[in-house]
Design a protein around this nucleic acid. Sequence first.
DNA 1: TTATTAATAATAATCATTACAAACTAATAT
DNA 2: ATATTAGTTTGTAATGATTATTATTAATAA
Lengths: 157, 157
Amino acid sequence: MEHRIEKIKKQLHSHSYKLTPQREATVRVLLEREDDHLSAEDVYLLVKEKSPEIGLATVYRTLELLSELKIVDKINFGDGVSRYDLRKEGAKHFHHHLVCIECGSVEEIENDLLGEVEQIVENDWGFEVKDHRLTFHGICRQCQAAAVKEDVQKATP
Amino acid sequence: MEHRIEKIKKQLHSHSYKLTPQREATVRVLLEREDDHLSAEDVYLLVKEKSPEIGLATVYRTLELLSELKIVDKINFGDGVSRYDLRKEGAKHFHHHLVCIECGSVEEIENDLLGEVEQIVENDWGFEVKDHRLTFHGICRQCQAAAVKEDVQKATP
DNA sequence: TTATTAATAATAATCATTACAAACTAATAT
DNA sequence: ATATTAGTTTGTAATGATTATTATTAATAA
């Protein structure tokens, strides 16, 4: 935890930004809720618990800054809100999402699914890939199970 | 053109929706500007040129409807606007985007890059994939060329 | 110490999107 | 023909996320 805070501090310094108390508080929340896809509002409310004097605009500005420095990913699942995910320790970015169209749950998977695919894009389209976003929409395990259960109930009334 | 309108008309009817004049005007704009990733506002302005009486809310409702019926894809490149793309004729959906982080251009590529990857997701995570969204962020051919040119100019002042 | 700069809080403004109420249309039942 | 109904549209108001602004504070440099 402290190790990662220290690292982020250095990243900020290298762009001559400071890790102010507000920024640190924000980063700590992101670290504590690492897999939660928090919205700016979510982050704001959580930071407020420990640092009640912080303002919403500051949280927005901090998240934007961290996003520019590629410390967090700003993602969008199509509901009207941006969500912010701290990038994992490993430098590479193999981080995709499974969004359930039934229950709205978001599962996160970590896997280099796109190594080859990026090569294809670079070779065939001359596009220098820096990053990607991959989201699958479908039906999660739980909802599949629930559907089967319902069918059984219909069959034996 | 007329053929595709007719097809969409049937799709709407099969869900007991009608292809009203306003809806038809909207679809025509989407057909004319097929690869343009128009925002709702864009579509509204274009439809208004030929059908000045249409309302913005109607355009939004129509796009939402078409999106629910999977006739258009509602996509999001992270600027604050949703964009709407008519799905191509072929039933399958191999449609990805290359977003340039220098100039903001969006190139569209058509290729089944993810057939195997979807299999992996289904097998390893038990997630039933219905659709996916894949976007690459990087540097387009033009901007790469421009960067090279700048370097040359610096080297020979 | 004083001047300068960066960062913050609080709030107002903006902008995309959605909700709402009233009017309209087309199809069907009477 | 007339009334009824459900579906659709319009114009506008409301909402909600995000950004801009302004005054203030904290940190740093001169």
